[in-house]
Design a protein around this nucleic acid. Structure first.
Lengths: 111, 111
DNA sequence: ATCTTATATCGCAAATATACGATTAAGCAT
DNA sequence: ATGCTTAATCGTATATTTGCGATATAAGAT
């Protein structure tokens, strides 16, 4: 079983889910927080700030990059990351569209 | 390995991640969308709308409920769900706090 | 050329998530 | 009581995620 049914949902639903999934781990939230605060790209400083091994942090960074939430460039022997604000804007507005807009239409909850 | 390190992050980080995780599947996004549109609580209608078996939908509903994103009440032989708007408000504002606020401070990206 | 530093990738073990069919439970009608 | 409908739970197979150590890669320093 567990045959992937994800493709059977709409692209928007898949995109939103993928975005959420990228944030679905405290380590990745923490990484995003650091990048948001420092703005300027950071690399192995992140490793020092997190309670995880270097290889694990690298993996989380890769996932965030694949999801388009951050971008990274190589800077000599180190690599430098920063938040992709555009992606956040896009997904935040989709969230709002899905939930905020509809919310104001009919607020009264039933259960 | 894979010894859970999630507890080593701050409560806010864990909460945000848990919220994101609840939304990290297109089926759950689709469920939330339905509940947002209809407002009034729905039950097995959701099963008809999704390309998934009843037991699978039930599992997704349980996860959303555990995460606090929806609430459900028993209504005779069927059960009735609706969105917990308060939870959304709380988490949306945390997202904004983390990312939007900081964004306006220093917009210029570096990579 | 060799060493050091910084980061990515590989391989593996353990934990979680996804999905379904089968079963259970609970309310309603007959 | 019996059957019908609706939804939750159990058991199980498979897929994905998480995490680490070890190894590879690549740039800069000696």
């Amino acid at each position: 079983m567990a045959t992937n049914k994800k493709e059977e949902f709409s692209q928007k639903e898949q995109d939103l889910a993928a975005f959420a999934k990228a944030m679905a781990h405290p380590a990745r939230i923490a990484i995003l927080k650091v990048l948001a605060q420092r703005n300027e790209c950071i690399c192995g400083e992140i490793v020092e700030l997190l309670p995880l091994a270097q290889s694990t942090v690298s993996q989380h960074l890769k996932e965030l990059k694949n999801a388009g939430l951050i971008s990274g460039t190589i800077d000599g022997p180190r690599s430098c990351y920063c938040i992709n604000w555009k992606a956040f804007e896009k997904f935040m507005s989709e969230f709002s569209f899905l939930f905020n807009k509809l919310k104001t239409q009919n607020e009264k909850a039933c259960c």
